[in-house]
Structures are given as structure tokens and as C-alpha cells.
């Protein structure tokens, strides 16, 4: 279970607060969506969950399975099951995709007290997972994300997610830059990972992703606070009315 309690966050180097008291609880196995206008703090929340040090938590706490993760380094959070699918996946020239995946997977397995995978075991796993996401294994021999299209980068994020088997998946604007077909492949990949043991937080600006990844709950984030929560129908309502309501509220 993820519990975000009265979370206040600012940029480390500045004084301007971005998140001003977020309260959010997601039960195990649930998928929640956070929607909101640009600049509302959605991506900040995603990065704070993953442990980015550009942000400073000034008040409140984040509990994952009952334990605060605020003091944990990003790799320790990953070992505890946290995974952030980036809005803009990074390119790493000179590091082959397979090397990257294997380094990450085995580092996590060591921390989770599991045996490291041998090369044949690893390759078998990668082949299986990448086939499901329509990813050519040749692509993974190339440097991480270098020269990939927007869709390929997002699929490669979901492949990482599938391989690393997180229990808390945070998807930051995973739909941005995707065409209809790529959106379907990525959504299918995410849906395949839905399980009673896995908690998901899907961050998006548009409702269309939520047609594919149907959430249990929808929250509207604006001006650093959750303004409204509701069922999946809230997303449809927002599609009609837009975010104007929340903009005016603050004005």
C-alpha cells in the first residue's frame, strides 16, 4: 500500500513550493490515475516517489508498505519495488541495452536476496518479455534508447518495468508522443502487469490513456494539491469540461 501524507515539496535550489499537501492512499492491487493541467506538479510527484534529489520534501511523508521511503536512495527504492517510467526516457550512448538491463536486473536481484541470472537465463527472459512488447532483440544490442523513436523509447520503458518486476509502478505521461498503435502496445504491456500484488499510479494529461488502462480511481492534481477524487468516470467528465474549473478555483 502506498500512503502519501500531507506531502510538501519544493525544488532543492529554490524556495518555491510545488506540492502543497498531497494526501493519497493507493491500496495494493489498485490502479489510480492522476490527471491535471500542465505545471500542476504531476511529474514532480512522480520523481519524488522515485527519489530524485532535485526536490526536497519539506513536510509530510511517503509510506510504502508501511515504511517511510524518504530517506532511501533511488536504487534502494527500486529494490523495495518502486519503478518510474519516465516521460522522457534517457539515452545512454555507449551502453548496450542488454548490458543495462542485465546490470539493473542483477543489482535488484542481489538486493532482494535472489540469485543473479546467468546469461542464458537472462536472454530467455528478455526474449520472452520483449516479444510481448513487439521489441526486436536487435534493438537492445544498440545503446540504450539512442536513435529510438518516441514509441520505441516508451516500449523500452515498459520492457524495463516488465523485467524488473516492481510492485509500485509510477507511469509519468507514458502516453505522450505515442500514436494510436503504439499507445495500444504500451497499454497492453502495462495491463499485462496488473496484478493483485502490484500498485500503479498512472499520471496523464489526457483521458485517452485511461480508455486503455482503466483506473480504479482518478484524482485531479492542480496547484500542488489533490482537488478532486472520483471513479473512472471523472476522467470522462474532465475530457468534457477541461481543467478550467481548477484553474479558476485558485485564481
Amino acid at each position: 500500500m502506498l500512503e502519501i501524507k500531507n506531502l510538501h515539496v519544493k525544488i532543492t535550489e529554490e524556495d518555491k513550493p510545488i506540492l502543497k499537501g498531497i494526501d493519497l492512499t493507493i491500496a495494493k492491487g489498485e490502479v489510480h490515475a492522476i490527471m491535471g493541467p500542465n505545471g500542476s506538479g504531476k511529474s514532480t510527484l512522480a520523481h519524488v516517489l522515485a527519489g530524485r534529489d532535485d526536490y526536497e520534501v519539506t513536510e509530510g511523508d511517503i509510506l510504502w508498505n508501511g515504511e517511510s521511503i524518504l530517506e532511501m536512495a533511488p536504487d534502494e527504492r527500486a529494490a523495495a519495488g518502486v519503478f518510474l517510467a519516465f516521460q522522457y526516457p534517457m539515452e545512454i550512448p555507449g551502453v548496450a541495452g542488454l548490458t543495462f538491463l542485465r546490470t539493473a536486473l542483477n543489482a535488484l536481484r542481489r538486493k532482494r536476496d535472489q540469485e543473479e541470472l546467468t546469461t542464458p537465463e537472462f536472454m530467455k527472459l528478455v526474449k520472452e518479455k520483449s516479444a510481448a512488447l513487439n521489441i526486436d532483440i536487435e534493438m537492445l544490442k544498440r545503446p540504450v534508447n539512442v536513435g529510438f523513436s518516441g514509441g520505441e523509447k516508451k516500449r523500452s520503458e515498459i520492457l524495463q518495468m516488465a523485467l524488473l518486476e516492481p510492485t509500485l509502478c509510477v507511469l509519468d505521461e507514458t502516453d505522450s508522443g505515442l500514436d494510436i498503435d503504439a499507445l495500444r502496445i504500451v497499454s497492453d504491456g502495462v495491463n499485462a502487469l496488473r496484478s493483485p500484488d502490484r500498485t500503479m499510479l498512472v499520471i496523464t494529461h489526457y483521458q485517452r490513456l485511461l480508455n486503455h488502462i482503466v483506473p480504479d480511481k482518478v484524482h485531479v492534481l492542480a496547484h500542488g494539491k489533490i482537488q478532486r477524487s472520483g471513479g473512472k468516470e471523472l476522467a470522462l467528465e474532465l475530457e468534457q469540461s477541461g481543467y478550467a474549473e481548477f484553474g479558476e478555483k485558485a485564481a
Binding site: 522515485a50 527500486a78 545512454i92 539493473a104 535488484l108 524495463q160
Partner: peptide
């Protein structure tokens, strides 16, 4: 940014550093 990307995948910072230097 690259360091954070690697670490968020569970790669400890010293290994991430090595990976990026190698790259």
C-alpha cells in the same frame, strides 16, 4: 539525469558511475 535514470532502475550509484564512465 543519467545517474538518476540508472539508479531508479536499481543500479547502485558506484556501478551507475562506472557504467557511465565506460560509456
Amino acid at each position: 539525469d543519467l545517474m538518476f535514470y540508472c539508479e531508479s532502475r536499481g543500479i547502485p550509484s558506484d556501478i551507475a558511475r562506472g557504467l557511465l564512465i565506460e560509456s
